[in-house]
Amino acid sequence: MLKRAVFLDKDGTLLDDVPYNVNPALMHFSRGARESLALFGAHSFTLVVVSNQSGVALGRFSYEALTLVELRLHEMFAACGVMLAGAYWCPHHPNGVVAPHAVACSCRKPEPGLVLKAAREHALDLRQSWFVGDILDDIEAGARAGCRTVLIDNGNETQWRDAPLRRPTLRVPDLYRAALAIVGSPRCKHRIASRSSSLVSSEVQR
């Protein structure tokens, strides 16, 4: 059975926005992120981080540095009582200086490549999933993959290039408001009600 997921951008959405940050000691949750993760976990969403990490291609840090970042994310999620299913990084940039990462690719947002890869690896139903990010490239990546989308309107988007796939399903000021909206969406409520009915039927049959 396919699972539903919440895809989360890393910097500026899940974590405070520290440019090119691969120092685990400087990784801090954004406002409301802890409560949001707990809420997603309580509603059985698979949680996935999807992030452009062009610092690799630009020579700011090595790809290997992202291993410690992922380990720290797993620790931070666990401290909230939830599991991080996976972290997916795009190390590319077409104007980079480090081969082989200095290329155009299908995984750098707004391309949907990493979302599609995560869906294959974790058996995710993209139609029942959400992508949450703080810029419109996140929104486009999620929409192109078939997800519903939430824009965290916290000032990090500055270009506002409009296009149909760059228009979010929802627009909220922070991650916690996003979580409340997602778990309160009609489809989410329907799934919870259906699951509860199934449990009741099972008990009756016993």
Rank of each mutant, 00 (worst) to 15 (best):
L2F: 09
K3T: 08
K3H: 15
F7Q: 08
D9V: 07
G12P: 05
T13C: 04
L14A: 03
L15P: 04
D16T: 13
D16S: 09
V18C: 07
N21V: 04
V22Y: 09
N23G: 05
P24Y: 14
G32N: 09
S36R: 01
L37K: 00
L37Y: 05
L37A: 08
L39E: 06
F40Q: 02
A42R: 15
H43S: 14
F45P: 01
F45H: 01
T46I: 09
T46P: 01
T46R: 08
V48N: 01
V48H: 05
V49D: 04
V49G: 00
V50C: 10
Q53C: 11
Q53R: 12
S54P: 06
V56H: 10
A57P: 01
L58A: 06
R60S: 03
R60A: 06
F61D: 03
F61Q: 11
S62R: 15
T67Q: 14
V69P: 03
E70R: 07
R72S: 00
E75D: 15
E75M: 07
A78P: 03
A78F: 08
A78R: 14
C80A: 15
G81T: 11
G81M: 11
V82S: 05
M83S: 14
L84R: 01
A85R: 12
A85Q: 14
G86A: 07
Y88Q: 05
W89A: 00
P91D: 11
H92E: 11
H92F: 02
H92V: 05
H93L: 11
P94M: 06
A102R: 11
A102S: 15
V103M: 09
A104Q: 14
C105Q: 12
S106Q: 13
P112N: 12
G113Q: 01
G113W: 00
L114K: 02
V115T: 12
L116T: 01
L116K: 12
L116Y: 02
K117D: 08
A119F: 02
H122P: 08
L126P: 00
R127Q: 14
R127Y: 01
S129T: 08
W130K: 02
W130C: 06
F131Y: 13
G133L: 04
D137C: 03
G142N: 07
G142K: 06
A145S: 13
G146Q: 12
C147A: 09
R148D: 04
L151E: 04
D153G: 00
D153E: 15
G155Y: 10
E157M: 12
T158P: 01
W160D: 02
R161C: 07
A163N: 10
R167I: 11
P168C: 10
T169Q: 03
V172A: 07
D174K: 03
Y176W: 12
R177P: 00
A178T: 05
A179E: 03
A179C: 12
L180Q: 15
A181W: 06
G184N: 12
G184E: 13
G184A: 14
G184C: 13
S185M: 07
R187S: 13
K189G: 11
H190G: 11
H190Y: 06
R191M: 09
S197L: 15
S197C: 13
S198M: 14
V200E: 13
V200C: 14
S202Y: 11
E203H: 09
Q205I: 06
R206C: 10
